[in-house]
Design a protein around this nucleic acid. Structure first.
Lengths: 340, 340
DNA sequence: CCGATTTGGCGAATCGGTTCGACAGACGAT
DNA sequence: ATCGTCTGTCGAACCGATTCGCCAAATCGG
């Protein structure tokens, strides 16, 4: 069931079938109808490989996700979902590829084997070898997150630095003087993970600017780590009355540790952060947070990538999003002030 | 940078390059070395589309996931991750495709456009039109889950019916007389969702067999629904001392509702279920459960699919897994017995 | 009524690989 | 010296689409 078979049954040439399908040249309505009928009968659809070979494009994009996949955070899952959705809208297929040392062959296949027209890269590091490889191969790509030197690169990101700064300001305005930052894991920071390092900077700057005392705590991406982290904070710095977090996966652990310590949120301890809306609302009480617009970001990434693919000479574009802080129920005035 | 270019620079014909790469015919060591050197210099990799066209296979499998993707349960995410991992091991790429009405064109592209060599289908219904479509198109596929009439189909599944039955038996052995089943949502059951309906059957059978009184509660896949569901159970049937759950996404909600009601697990209320190990361990206290071996299932699905692709005439195989119940801390003897 | 233009469709080349058959040269056996 | 075998390589066909150039018939204007 190839185009030749269709042509034979419709009594026309292969090229006519092709033109009838693509509309790139005029075909008489009668002929077109006859061809369409045969196609419907046989459930014919052009062979993707043949088309890709001739056209030089695959109508497929690669989505490179961080391993181990099983540990995908909810936010990352939202990216994947929204990229998938946006790609589907644009009639693009998505080839999902884990990155990392053991998957290097797969990555090279993707790039050098021209399996995809472009790539969306998630979880990039400040220095990221994959960016260099893509650049060298001349493969269009958009990163979610941005490297230390993103000039000439297309990217979409959330302004972690600014957002964490605004969270600190929010706490300062409410009278908190001693605050903690619960960051991502120490390994990720050492590995040059952008959002973590930018959160660090934003926190340090804002703490200095508003004259607060700040303590930074790295924390692995799971509930037990969150539990342990909050316990450490409470032990080591009992004067801390509020925390800013960029670690949504650890949130359930915070709840447990605070509860065990007999601290109520927000009466005794305020919590604010940057997180996916889902996690923020799941928290008890609902977390005041800057909701990362993951869905929008995924869609924008696909949009940018299609633009890039369509015009490889176009000037690089990027998008730095800074969503507003949604006021929920996890932040209150500092205890010390309430005693006045 | 195509095979012709490599051939020219190495001073051989295109076919020799091809044979040097594939090893399907003997090529002298010197020639092979010369070719390899040119390839390394240019980072050459065969164009996937051209190869797919000639070979008639794409070295790609499709993974069809349920929409809305954003609501993937942890277990489903584990399937995706393990399929990805296993495919990567087998040098296969994975095309991720959401299913559902709005994505029908993408699904047809996958199947009729021969974009993939085979398909893995997740979340299938007892009656599933996608199964029929795949069958009609002659596309090899493996389902995770099985339809009402799985004869002639390749599949991998967990024995929900048997597992739920064993959970009930476990509770009966410990003296519980009135037990609840917290199932998946009413919509999913109405829609013919296999695991939910099989859990229902297993529960009903076991309850009858051991002479217990059973109450079935459907529950949506999220924490608030779980909270509300447990509250209803406690209100409507205060005599219930234990529940079996197959709804891992609702678990955090159970915790909250039980806590609010002042019931301790397992002293006052026992909980047992079928869930991903991750969720079972995240629960407070760790949940006694039959851990769904999602990672194994994903790997097995890929394995079966490659066998099927390699020999389309092979007799269908399937795998019905029945993991043991891991005893953790959420089940105890019934209260009434403890008073003896 | 004749040349120019438009309409509708055809044939062949092409994309970049794989693979089959052929073939030249080296070598061993008789 | 001759024949057969084996080695290593080449040339050409092919996979299934798209697209360019071309041409026959129909239509139009003066």
């Amino acid at each position: 069931m190839n185009i030749g078979e269709i042509a034979k049954r419709a009594g026309v040439s292969r090229s006519t079938v092709s033109y009838a399908l693509s509309g790139k040249r005029h075909v008489s309505p009668e002929t077109k109808a006859r061809i369409q009928q045969v196609i419907d009968e046989l459930d014919y659809r052009p062979n993707a490989a043949a088309r890709a070979l001739k056209e030089g494009r695959t109508r497929t994009i690669g989505l490179v996700i961080p391993p181990p996949v099983r540990r995908l955070t909810y936010m990352q899952l939202e990216f994947v979902a929204s990229v998938l959705e946006a790609a589907s809208q644009a009639d693009l297929d998505v080839l999902l590829s884990p990155s990392g040392d053991t998957h290097a062959p797969a990555f090279s296949r993707l790039i050098d084997g021209r399996r995809v027209d472009g790539v969306i890269l998630m979880e990039i590091r400040l220095q990221d070898p994959r960016v260099d490889q893509l650049r060298k191969a001349g493969m269009p790509f958009v990163t979610i997150g941005h490297t230390a030197h993103p000039e000439g690169v297309w990217w979409v990101d959330v302004d972690y630095q600014g957002l964490v700064g605004r969270c600190v300001k929010h706490l300062a305005d409410l009278g908190h003087r001693d605050v903690a930052l619960i960051n991502r894991s120490a390994e990720m920071l050492a590995d040059g993970y952008g959002p973590g390092l930018r959160a660090q900077q934003g926190f340090a700057q804002a703490v200095a600017q508003y004259g607060l005392t700040g303590f930074e705590y790295p924390c692995a991406d799971d509930a037990p780590a969150g539990d342990a982290c909050v316990e450490r904070i409470l032990n080591e710095h009992p004067e801390v009355t509020a925390a800013v977090t960029v670690n949504e996966s650890a949130l359930p652990g915070f709840q447990r540790a605070l509860q065990r310590a007999g601290l109520r949120v927000p009466a005794d301890f305020s919590l604010i952060g940057v997180a996916a809306q889902h996690w923020a609302e799941e928290f008890q009480p609902p977390l005041t947070s800057a909701d990362v617009p993951a869905v929008q970001m995924g869609a924008e990434a696909v949009q940018l990538l299609t633009e890039y693919i369509a015009d490889r000479a176009a000037a690089p574009k990027h998008l730095l999003l800074s969503p507003p802080i949604s006021l929920r129920d996890s932040v209150s005035r500092a205890r010390t002030l309430e005693r006045d």
